[in-house]
Design a protein around this nucleic acid. Sequence first.
DNA 1: ACATTGACCTGAGAGC
DNA 2: TGCTCTCAGGTCAATG
Length: 264
Amino acid sequence: MPELPDVEIFRRYFLSTSLHKKIRAVDIKSRDMLKEVSAEKIKSTLERNSFMSALRHGKYLFMETERDEKWLVLHFGMTGFLKYYKDLDHRPGHERLLVYFSNGYHLAYDCQRKLGTISLTDSPDAFIKKRQLGPDALNPDYSLESFAEDFRKIRGKIKSALMKQKYIAGIGNIYSDEILFQAGIHPGVQSSRLKKKDMENIYRQMNHVLKTAIEAHADPGRLPSSFIIPHRQEGDICPKCKAGIEKEKIGGRTAYYCPQCQKK
DNA sequence: ACATTGACCTGAGAGC
DNA sequence: TGCTCTCAGGTCAATG
């Protein structure tokens, strides 16, 4: 599930539920999801501490602690999400990290497939650099000029390029389909062969689609009816021209597109 | 150097 | 009902 809009919604959820509350205890339920940190280190950093802010870069969420200037870093894989709850009856099904606040509430990081990661860092910038993440897809400082120049040099297909986190961070399988659908570009086109106008189109739609998705709380049911996301299934029709939606494997992932609106 | 493939996990749904 | 197979909104290491 979690691409940039989803993680942005998680960030806002975290801000509205979990700041400035004393952390009574921390339970690491899946040690295999820890990356470059021990369970003991996470516990000693968070316990008796509290959270004071949060940042997002691409699909990563950074949560800053009040003391020690440490940041808990979560990646949500394909199935991760956060849940803040009091009553244990509301506990989600696959808790991997559980924070107990002294007010009796819990913040759970749930990740069924365990494809996400839990880390700790002194600096989000250093973390981003180390993981070789590109600019965040909604970073206003990442200009159309830079985007066009970068993507002209990439040899793969445009869909794969948009999903590559080292080129640009935050876009995954679902939103790359939407951006290309809105831009009217076939996902299998070579990035380097796109015209200046196509680049501009993709760049604008990338910003528009991601912002629109955040406004809709990354909830497919609340997206505009002109989006292809609710129609990403075989046998469905294009919301713009009513042609049948087609699918194709591109870079190992399933791309859905409209053969009429997105010609090669 | 760059692009593609398989592995990593777990569960839901389709088909028999 | 129960089995097997395929697929899933992600990434990383290994391969071509």
